[in-house]
């Protein structure tokens, strides 16, 4: 299977990329890792007239902590995230997510920014981005916007990026001390998109109470979903099995999956709950904090 013809524009710098976007408008697509776009083009499900290749922009490859954020550039590969020592040591949710996306070869090319821009309803990064409260730096020739993950992920395969814009960076607020995270995914095999997935990030106070919670689920709706009520229910409380059980029920109510080869509506919804429960327990376990009355 071979893609339809297109015009190829190589962007060597951010300016070149933005200029090309301004020039071609809606006919153009950014080409990042290409791990979603190129297969779609081979099946001729996507037929962009112009591809603007941002891979040559090495200045976009960074993964670094600055100004209270972890900043991930638009061409940083999933594999670099997986291997990054600050991420491994301080961003457990991201580290756990990075290990289960696609397969290890695809991860050497696919990008976090590309995944968010693709916004596959079963994608993993959108879930982690919601739970970790990421912000996306969106830029066009007309200027730069900082968009929260909630606003960025509009609908299936639709984001807040305008035709003449691109995402240049994804930012994760630097987790305060006593922050722990986990990511759980059910996949039929390595390289499969999730049947259901859940990402969790909890910040505790020294008494073992949850000071801030991020909980999101994926593959169970038109896009990744925040379990906002669950987050609220946990905040200010010491986690107990009972509380986790209630959050699981909330997650199941939030889930609104469709049936496909991966599973029925019922199964996916139930699994969203199971995985939220497991991720919450993991985060609690990792914290090692047993506040008063804690049970998990």
């Amino acid at each position: 299977m071979f893609p339809a013809q297109f015009t190829y524009e190589r962007a060597r710098s951010e300016d070149e990329a933005l200029a090309a976007l301004a020039k071609y408008g809606s006919d153009a697509r950014i080409l990042a890792g290409g791990q979603s776009l190129i297969p779609a083009m081979r099946y001729r499900l996507a037929r962009p007239g112009v591809l603007i290749d941002i891979n040559p922009i090495t200045a976009f490859e960074y993964i670094e902590e600055r100004d209270g954020y972890l900043s991930v550039g638009a061409t940083a590969r999933d594999y670099a995230i997986e291997m990054s020592s600050p991420i491994r040591s301080r961003y457990q949710l991201l580290a756990a997510t990075s290990k289960v996306i696609a397969d290890p070869v695809v991860r050497q090319t696919g990008t976090l920014a590309g995944s968010l821009c693709h916004n596959d309803p079963a994608g993993d990064w959108p879930v982690a981005a919601l739970a970790a409260r990421a912000q996306i730096v969106v830029r066009g020739v007309r200027g730069t916007r900082l968009v929260s993950a909630d606003d960025f992920l509009v609908d299936s395969f639709t984001t807040a990026v305008g035709d003449d814009e691109m995402a240049v960076e994804v930012r994760f607020p630097k987790p305060p001390p006593l922050t722990y995270g986990a990511y759980h995914k059910i996949e039929r095999k390595v390289g499969d998109f999730a049947t259901a997935c859940a990402g969790v990030q909890l910040t505790f106070d020294t008494g073992g109470r949850v000071a801030a919670a991020g909980i999101a689920i994926g593959a169970v709706g038109a896009k990744a979903l925040r379990v906002a009520d669950g987050e609220m229910m946990m905040t200010g409380y010491v986690p107990t099995e009972e509380l986790i059980g209630e959050v699981v029920e909330v997650a199941k109510r939030v889930a609104d999956p469709v049936a496909d080869n991966r599973g029925s509506v019922q199964y996916k919804r139930e699994m969203a709950g199971v995985l939220v429960g497991r991720a919450l327990r993991d985060a609690c376990r990792l914290s090692g904090l047993k506040g008063e009355g804690a049970s998990w």
């Binding site: 299977m1 791990q35 190129i38």
Partner: peptide, 26 residues
């Protein structure tokens, strides 16, 4: 055709494995 099998894997710049069916020659 779906970047699934890895039969096409080559190494880019000495360290990075890529599926060459999911990369344009350009």
């Amino acid at each position: 055709d779906s970047s699934s099998c890895g039969c096409c894997t080559v190494v880019l710049d000495g360290t990075r494995a890529v599926k060459s069916c999911t990369m344009f020659a350009v």
